[in-house]
Every structure is written in structure tokens, then in C-alpha cells.
């Protein structure tokens, strides 16, 4: 009722009210989402006592301390951990995107016996968490001698990421006009070129979305590194940070510093993909 009278009186103020409301909601959400990250960041630059005395205050000249970062750099081989995390994340991501897109193309594009069944089988992976199979996976890795290798992690994460990737990408691919692909076939493009040159550029926004959704859980995972690759040479950042969490004493400075550092690479990757995402969306809009 009230909204209606406002609208009939002046649509402009209604509009600005809506804009303000939308922004208020979004800003609130952003604050809530960023709060823990900011807390980690500011506390990582404080001395131990300051962290506990006033966890919410910014570091000042008295409380400022790089002791956490120093510990991280000194203890353990954090550069190696970072490298491991990056190798695992980027390789898994590349495999998920490549194989996911290829499988999605086959499912979306070709009519063959068992098409629907294959699609359903792959979609099962979305509903059943891969961790349920941990014991079997560990046995498999032991049998194939892959325990304590990054390969083990890459394989597992690829399997973990594929179902959702295939599902999302094949839905997008079904939306691409058959005529376009057929025009390519008449012009003599091979199926690989149609996939690579016509279809992939058109689903770039979907690829970027899938990349972000796939990347974050891999980067943050503690479970599989702990079980499949806990050796010193194959530790990932999340696992490496655990050395500071003891049963009796936890080195909070070091934990917070290592977590802060761990945010950086994933942030860079995210920025790359989100730029692709926006590029793809604007390219589609003027189609």
C-alpha cells in the first residue's frame, strides 16, 4: 500500500529508495563476509598479547609486530608449501576445465546410446561427496604408489571438480545455437575446432564461474593433503599452517600470518577469472 502511493507520487524517489535498499543489503552482506578475513589480516600484524587483549583494534605502533610472518618464514618451508598448493590447484583446475568442457560438449552435442545415463552417472558425483570414498582412494593410491605425491592430490581434485563442471557446462552448451555449429561443419571445421573455436569462447562466463567454484575448495582443502600427501615435500599451505596449531599451545601469530599469506594467490587467481567473467558477459550482451 505504502509503496504504491510512493510510486504514484514520484517514481524517481521510489527508484532511489530501491537502489539504496539494494546497496544497503549488499554492503551489509559484504561486511559480514569480509569480517573474518579482515580480523585475520589485522591480527596477523599484531603481537600475541595484543591479539588477545583487543582482537578488533587495528595494529598501532605499540602492538605492531611481524613476529608471525617471521616465524612462518623461519619455520617450515613455506615457499615450498605455496608452490605445492599452486601446482595442485592450477593443475586440477586445468584438468577439470579441459575434461569437463570436453565431456559436456559430447553430452550436449551428440546423440548416442546411453547419453542420458552417462549424464546422470556424472551428475551423481554432485550429490555424493568424494570424501565418502576416502578409504578406497587411499588404498588405490597406496597400491599405485602415489601416496605422498602431488599427482595423487591432482587426480582426486580433478575427480571432485568434474561432476559440477560437466553439469553446468553442458547446460550452457545446450544453449548454443545448432545453426552456428552446423555452419562451422559446412565450412569444414573439425569437431575439435568447433569445440575450441566456436563453443568455448561463447561459454567463457560459464568457464570462469566453474573455475572459481572449483578452485576455492581445492585451495582450502585440508582433508586430502593430510591423508594422501602429508610428507614434508608435498605439504600444501593449509596443511603447513597446521604445524602452528598444537594440542596444547597454538602459535596464533604464525597461524594468522600463514592464513593471510594463503589468501594472496587465490585472490590473484580469482581476479583473473572474474575479469574473464565480466568480459564474457559483456561480449554476450551485444551478440
Amino acid at each position: 500500500m505504502a509503496a504504491q502511493t510512493t510510486m504514484s507520487r514520484s517514481p524517481l524517489s521510489q527508484q532511489s529508495f530501491r537502489a539504496i535498499a539494494a546497496h544497503a543489503i549488499l554492503i551489509t552482506y559484504t561486511l559480514i563476509a569480509l569480517f573474518p578475513v579482515v580480523i585475520i589480516l589485522i591480527n596477523s600484524f599484531k603481537s600475541r598479547n595484543a591479539i588477545f587483549r583487543s582482537p578488533l583494534s587495528l595494529p598501532n605502533s605499540e602492538t605492531f609486530s611481524l613476529i608471525g610472518y617471521e616465524t612462518v618464514m623461519k619455520q617450515g618451508d613455506f615457499v615450498l608449501y605455496f608452490q605445492n598448493s599452486l601446482i595442485v590447484t592450477v593443475s586440477s583446475l586445468a584438468m577439470v576445465l579441459l575434461f569437463g568442457a570436453m565431456a559436456a560438449f559430447a553430452l550436449a552435442e551428440y546423440r548416442f546410446k546411453g547419453n542420458l545415463l552417462t549424464g546422470l552417472y556424472l551428475a551423481l558425483g554432485i550429490m555424493i561427496p568424494i570424501r565418502l570414498g576416502t578409504v578406497a582412494i587411499l588404498q588405490m593410491m597406496v597400491a599405485s604408489g602415489l601416496v605422498n605425491t602431488l599427482t595423487a592430490l591432482i587426480l582426486v581434485y580433478t575427480a571432485q571438480g568434474l561432476p559440477l563442471a560437466i553439469f553446468i557446462l553442458s547446460e550452457f552448451m545446450k544453449g548454443i545455437s545448432d545453426d552456428l555449429k552446423n555452419a562451422g561443419r559446412i565450412d569444414g571445421l573439425s569437431e575439435y575446432r568447433i569445440f575450441g573455436r566456436l563453443v568455448l569462447p561463447l561459454i567463457r562466463p560459464a568457464l570462469a564461474t566453474v573455475a572459481v567454484f572449483t578452485m576455492i575448495p581445492i585451495w582450502n582443502d585440508l582433508w586430502f593433503p593430510l591423508i594422501l600427501a602429508p610428507s614434508e615435500e608435498t605439504k600444501t599451505v593449509t596443511l603447513g599452517a597446521q604445524v602452528f596449531i598444537g594440542q596444547f599451545v597454538t602459535n596464533w601469530n604464525a597461524v594468522l600470518s600463514s592464513l593471510s599469506l594463503a589468501i594472496l594467490p587465490v585472490l590473484v587467481l580469482y581476479l583473473i577469472f572474474s575479469r574473464q567473467l565480466i568480459k564474457g558477459i559483456t561480449a554476450g550482451a551485444v551478440k
Binding site: 545453426d179 552446423n182 555452419a183 561443419r185 561463447l202
Partner: peptide, 20 residues
């Protein structure tokens, strides 16, 4: 024979031009 080998050309209702 595949489409390219048939000596045909096709014009589609949706134009089907390569957008890029």
C-alpha cells in the same frame, strides 16, 4: 560424405555468423 565434401553452402534462419 561430410558436409564440406558435398559442394553445398547453407544459409540459416538465425544467420549463424561466427560472433568473434
Amino acid at each position: 560424405q561430410p558436409p564440406t565434401k558435398r559442394g553445398i553452402a547453407m544459409v540459416f534462419q538465425t544467420y549463424a555468423l561466427y560472433p568473434h
